[in-house]
Simulated assay, not measured.
Amino acid sequence: MKVIIIEDEARTANELKNMLLAIDNDIEVLAILGSVSKAVDWFTHHPMPELIFSDIELGDGLSFELFKKVSIEVPVIFCTAFDEYAIRAFESNSIDYLLKPLDEAMLQKSLEKYLRLKEHLIQGEQRALNMERVIDQIELAYKQTILVNYREKIIPIRLQDVAFIYTLNGLVYLELDKNRRFTVPYTLEQFDSMIDPHQFFRANRKFILNRDFIEDIEYYFNRKLFITCKIESPEKIIISRVKAQPFLQWLES
């Protein structure tokens, strides 16, 4: 079986590859693709594999962008940390999933399911229509509003109004457009899987940025980037050299 892995975390991708080979050493991993752009280029110049394992959030966008740009004619097993709502969307469209962290027993079960259904899998135009429905359902699964406790009230905060999310002294804050600031009972890691990666970017271990509130970008020493937001931040927002190019690609997308 020839498979492709689309995953931007090298460790996770290698773990998945090793688990696949442990389950069946006849499996051939043709390539590990770490971004939407690399995946588009690969599928443009190579024949289709038999099966694709794909993360959802990649460094330069959602893997769904690949399926919009390239006609994928083979089954996809998504690797995701999304909640039960999103998983039901996958199942209703005959697309299997793996929850992170990856588990070898679940992986084997997914492979067995694929082999059982191989001859009956939907092909061509109907598969494309099903994929479009999955994309629509998953994009709707991102949080649009966060409820915060403020004094004796519960206040709904629209995420589109949040300039940036940041952590300071062990607390996580939402900074709004009118210099309103609220603490929330989530970590930045939890926000990573809750919010739309088209709208928000994890700049570093302290900040998640809303694209609509980015004022300008300056080159910093050692090829890093210094970000100025329309709302003053409590400290400098620096993007590392490694993240600089994915950040600029995200901002242009």
Rank of each mutant, 00 (worst) to 15 (best):
V29Q: 02
L58Q: 08
I23E: 10
L51S: 02
L66T: 04
T80L: 08
K113P: 01
G61P: 01
L121K: 08
I87K: 03
E73P: 00
A89D: 04
N14A: 13
I23R: 07
N18S: 12
L98H: 09
F90K: 05
K113C: 06
K38M: 13
L66E: 01
D41E: 14
F78M: 06
L21V: 11
E15H: 12
P101V: 09
S54L: 09
Y114M: 07
N25E: 12
M106D: 09
E28D: 12
I23V: 12
Q108A: 11
A86L: 06
N93H: 15
I72H: 00
S35K: 05
A22L: 15
E28L: 12
K118S: 04
D41L: 09
A22D: 15
T12D: 10
N18V: 10
S35G: 01
L20T: 05
V70P: 02
G34W: 11
L66S: 01
L21I: 14
F90T: 04
L16M: 13
F90P: 00
R88N: 11
G59P: 01
Y97Q: 02
E84P: 00
R88S: 06
S110N: 08
L107M: 09
M19V: 13
I95Q: 12
A31N: 05
A81G: 08
R88A: 06
L51W: 05
T80P: 01
N18F: 13
L121M: 10
K109D: 11
S92I: 10
L20V: 09
A89H: 03
I77T: 00
F53K: 00
E15Y: 15
S63E: 03
V29S: 07
L33S: 00
Q108T: 05
K68W: 09
S110M: 12
P75A: 06
R11K: 09
L51G: 01
F82P: 01
F82Q: 05
L66C: 03
V29P: 00
E104D: 09
K68E: 14
G61F: 13
F67S: 01
E91N: 09
V29N: 04
S92L: 14
D41T: 06
L99N: 04
D55Q: 07
K38T: 13
L51A: 02
L117F: 14
L107T: 05
L21S: 10
E28K: 08
K68G: 11
L115D: 11
P47D: 15
F53I: 00
R88F: 11
R116K: 14
E112M: 10
I27H: 06
I56M: 12
L16F: 12
A86F: 03
K68R: 14
F78A: 02
P101M: 14
